[in-house]
Design a protein around this nucleic acid. Structure first.
Length: 194
DNA sequence: AACGCCTGCAACCGCATCTGT
DNA sequence: GACAGATGCGGTTGCAGGCGT
């Protein structure tokens, strides 16, 4: 028996027209029979998907509004990746559309938010380290008491940039570890002690 | 203009669930 | 209950179009 090779890939306007006319006349049922009866060289599954995601007359075109996005976020928090359930709460939107929107737009936004959150957490960790180092430096000064030379690089390392620069911080830690003797300007470090 | 990279989205695939026999 | 076919769903892929170089 010869097997008919079913067409795949993008739908043509002609195919859309045939499918839409057929569904309007007979209703969306028995998808496995639709291709044969309508005269479309596609599988029933493909016809169903095309109708549900593109040809249905109640489909809402255009961008997802901020209100819809907010609703998607809230529903996703409740339901997880249950796209069809989420779509059911957004009239005119399909599960495929919402899934795509989530995977492209929302996921990216959440990733950026997550990155900035972890960066701020990281800053906090570095700040704690820097504070610890500075205290150690001050303690050392109190112990040593004597006059020491000014080392500009140390002060620079403890500036705001230091909080983003692990190397600078490690440099200071190293000096503390090796009980190196140096000086600093307390005024320029005061912010870090707050 | 040509090329490569990136993005968004339509469509496919595989599996789960439903329905009829 | 067992099975087969139909349907539904979520993950993934492939491609067209936009954009930068």
């Amino acid at each position: 028996m010869q097997r008919v090779l079913l067409k795949r890939g993008a739908w043509t306007p002609e195919e859309d027209q045939i499918l839409a006319s057929y569904i309007e006349a007979h209703g969306p049922q028995k998808w496995s029979h639709v291709p044969k009866k309508a005269g479309i060289n596609r599988c029933g599954k493909s016809c169903r998907l095309r109708w549900l995601n593109y040809l249905r007359p109640d489909i809402k075109r255009g961008n997802i509004t901020p209100e819809e996005e907010d609703l998607i976020l809230r529903l996703h928090k409740l339901l997880g990746n249950r796209w069809s359930l989420i779509a059911g709460r957004l009239p005119g939107r399909t599960d495929n559309e919402i899934k795509n929107y989530w995977n492209t737009v929302i996921k990216k936004k959440l990733q950026i938010r997550e990155e900035s959150r972890s960066e701020s957490e990281n800053r906090s960790v570095v700040r704690t380290k820097a504070t610890r180092c500075t205290r150690a430096l001050i303690d050392q000064e109190l112990i040593n008491g004597g006059e020491v030379g000014f080392k500009e690089s140390t002060v620079v390392a403890l500036s705001e940039d230091c909080l983003q620069d692990h190397d600078s911080l490690f440099f200071i830690e190293e000096m503390v570890d090796h009980e190196m003797c140096f000086s600093w300007e307390l005024d320029s470090l005061s912010w870090i002690m707050d």
